[in-house]
Design a protein around this nucleic acid. Structure first.
Length: 228
DNA sequence: CTCAAAATAT
DNA sequence: CATATTTTGA
């Protein structure tokens, strides 16, 4: 737990994938440790564990960052100074969307959830804290306390995560190179997940790199702005 | 066109 | 809640 995100250099290419220029600093989000008060308790006491991030604000950050990726418009590099929302980004309807559909943000159609490394990290941490046996979608979602995150999202990701674990456990190494990596020590977690997003470009390259390459991209959802 | 992530259905 | 299948996006 001491990895530092090194954003020392950006590719001189025109496609600069900014994973988290203004909000990296630490891969560790909230100190998910003991101060984990049960949401229920918090709710019962009417105390807000967190200042409830209005997705709007966070969204703005995402928009800025994503702008760099989306279009080659390069007039947003300045976002490197401000925008330090190192929280999780959740695709949430904007004001317009929020106001839509009557008055139930819960029912609003979320475009698509992008499991950014940060989010995944949280997810893994929570799962680890709960234990594989008690790690159920609902609990995970609640403990994560990520605004906008729904149980379905977690369930889907959990499924994938389990498969990922299984895959690794079943075939540890095996493959082209018979490398005797870890003989019989199935660490719950070795590296972060394979990939949350891959820079394709045109052709097709290796699905997962295998190592922790911080080349993730935070591709946003569809173009709900009106452009395809 | 392929493949994998997320959504959705069973 | 878990698993299977479909959709969606790079």
């Amino acid at each position: 737990m001491g990895e530092e995100v090194r954003m020392s250099d950006y590719d001189g290419d025109d496609r600069v994938y900014e994973w988290e220029v203004g909000l990296p600093s630490a891969d560790d989000l909230t100190p998910l440790s003991q101060p984990l008060i049960s949401p229920e308790m918090a709710s019962a006491f009417s105390i807000s564990p967190e200042p409830r991030r209005s997705a709007t604000d966070v969204n703005r950050a995402s928009q800025n960052t994503l702008s760099a990726i989306s279009s080659s418009n390069n007039f947003n590099f300045k976002s490197l100074n401000d925008e330090r929302s190192q929280e999780e980004f959740v695709e949430e309807g904007d004001e317009a969307d929020l106001a839509r559909e009557g008055s139930d943000p819960r029912k609003a159609k979320r475009p698509r959830l992008v499991w950014t490394p940060q989010l995944h990290k949280r997810f893994v941490e929570v799962v680890k804290h709960l234990g594989v046996g008690n790690a159920v979608p609902k609990t995970i979602m609640q403990l994560m306390n990520v605004e906008g995150l729904t149980r379905e999202n977690v369930a889907s990701h959990l499924q994938k995560y389990r498969l990922y674990l299984k895959r690794m456990q079943g075939l540890s190494d095996d493959g082209p190179s018979s490398d005797k990596l870890f003989t019989s020590a199935p660490p719950p977690q070795m590296m972060h997940m394979p990939v949350i997003g891959m820079a394709h470009g045109n052709g097709h390259m290796g699905p997962y790199h295998g190592f922790e390459s911080h080349r993730y991209n935070m591709v946003q959802h569809r173009d709900w702005s009106g452009n395809k």
